[in-house]
Nucleic acid binder design. Structure first.
Lengths: 216, 216
DNA sequence: ATCTAATGTTTACACTGAAAACATACTAGA
DNA sequence: TCTAGTATGTTTTCAGTGTAAACATTAGAT
C-alpha cells in the first residue's frame, strides 16, 4: 500500500519505525503502563510476535522511544534558546517554557522518559547519553550566563542541575494534574512566576530586569 | 500468631493492613509497576482473590498506599520543620533535606505517589487531600517566612509551589539515578547547594546567611 | 537459480487482574 | 442459646499479556 523506500522493501516496509510510531500514539492515548505490544501489533495488522524481530524486549522498545523523546526535547529547548542569543535571562526563560510546553503536549511520553519504567542507573548508556544531551542545552546557557556575568559565580553544572530539577519538578507536577485547577491563562503566569523565582536565585541582576512575559 | 485486636478477629486477623504492608515491601523491592496482587497473596499464604474483599481494585490498593505515603511524608517534613521553630531559613532547609531523605529511602513508594499510575486529576479526592496536606507543611513555612520578613513579599502559595516543584524535581532525578555518579558525601553537598540556590531566590536575606550545613 | 539471512507467523506457556459461584466463620438478634 | 445475616476467604474461570520455539516466507548475494 505504502510506496516503499528505495533501500529495503521487506514484508512490511519498515516495521521497526512504524511500530515505534504506533506505540507512541497508543502511549499518548492510554498511558505508558497500559501499553500492550499486542495491541500495537493489531493496530498495524501484524502478528503479535513480529515486534520481537526488531526489539529484544518491551523494555527495549520503550527505551528507544524514551531516547527519541529526549532528542526531541533537546531539539525544541535548543531552538527556544536560539530565540535570544544575546540575552541570557530571556533565553533561559524561553528554554524553561518550551521545556514545560513539551511536557504538557506529550505528558505520557515525558513520563516514559522519567517515569522509572526505564532505570537510568544501570545499563543503557545510549539512553543516558541522549538524556544528558538534553541536559546539555541547559548547561550551555548556564555557562554562557556565568561568562557574561549575568549569573552568579558558581559551577555552571551546579546551576544547570538547579534549573533542571526545578523545571523537571514543575513538569511532573504539571502532568500529574497538580495545577489542574488553574485555567490556561493563570497557569501560564504561574509557570512563568515559578521560573522567575528560580532565575532570581541564580542571577546577579536585580529582580526587575527578569522578563516575565517573553513569548515562547 | 499475632495477638489480635480486641475488636474483630476474622479469618486472617487483619488482612487489609497485612496486605498493604506486604505490598509495600514488594514494591520497595521490585518497583511499583511489577507489583502483582497474586504474588502478595502468595506471600501471605492467602488465596489470590482474597484481596478483592478489601480493595475494589489494584488501583484502589495502590491509591491507599500512596495516601499512606503522603501522610508519612507530611509527618517527617513536619518534624523536620519543628527543629527550627524560630529560624525560617534553617527550617526550610531541613524540610527540604528530610523530603529528599524520604524519597531516597523509599524511592518506589515515592514513585507510586507521583508516578502517574494514579491520576491525581480525576476522582480520588481522599488522595488529593492528603497530598495537599503534604504541601501544607511547605506552605506553612512560607507563610511564616513572609510574615517574619525573611522571605520576599509574594503569595505564600506561589513560594510554596516554587519550593515544592524544586524539591520534587530533585527527588525524582535522585531516585531516577541522575545523581548516581556522586558519592554519598558529595551528593549531600550537591543537594544542599541546590536547595540553597532555591532559597536565594525567595529570601530577603543576603546569601551568606543561608545555612548550608544544618543537620537533618 | 540457489543459498542464506532477515523478516513475519503459528503455536504454546506461564503469568496477570478480575468476575462468579461457593464455603466458612464471626456477629447480632431472637 | 440458637439462628440468621453478613463479612471474609476459596475455587474456578476467563480474557489479556509478554515472550520463547518452531515454522514459513521473502529479499538480496552468489
Amino acid at each position: 500500500m505504502v510506496p516503499m523506500n528505495s533501500k529495503t522493501q521487506y514484508h512490511h516496509g519498515d516495521l521497526a519505525s512504524a511500530f515505534m510510531d504506533a506505540a507512541i500514539k497508543r502511549i499518548a492515548q492510554e498511558g505508558v503502563d497500559k501499553l500492550s505490544l499486542r495491541a500495537v501489533a493489531r493496530d498495524l495488522g501484524v502478528s503479535q510476535t513480529a515486534p520481537y524481530r526488531h526489539f529484544t524486549d518491551k523494555t527495549h522498545l520503550l527505551s528507544l522511544l524514551a531516547q527519541q523523546g529526549f532528542q526531541e526535547l533537546a531539539d525544541c529547548t535548543h531552538k527556544a534558546a536560539m530565540l535570544h542569543p544575546q540575552d541570557t535571562l530571556k533565553a533561559i526563560m524561553c528554554v524553561g517554557m518550551s521545556y514545560l510546553k513539551f511536557a504538557q503536549e506529550h505528558p505520557e511520553h515525558y513520563r516514559l522518559m522519567f517515569g522509572g519504567t526505564l532505570k537510568h542507573e544501570c545499563g543503557n548508556n545510549e539512553l543516558k547519553n541522549v538524556s544528558l544531551s538534553s541536559f546539555g542545552v541547559i548547561l550551555q546557557q548556564m555557562t554562557l550566563g556565568v561568562e557574561r556575568g549575568d549569573l552568579i559565580q558558581q559551577e555552571p553544572t551546579l546551576l544547570a542541575h538547579s534549573c533542571w530539577a526545578k523545571v523537571h519538578g514543575m513538569a511532573m507536577l504539571l502532568i500529574d494534574g497538580f495545577y489542574a485547577d488553574y485555567e490556561a491563562r493563570e497557569l501560564d503566569t504561574l509557570l512563568r512566576s515559578l521560573l522567575w523565582l528560580s532565575l532570581r536565585g541564580i542571577t546577579t541582576k536585580p529582580i526587575s530586569q527578569i522578563p516575565l512575559d517573553e513569548p515562547v
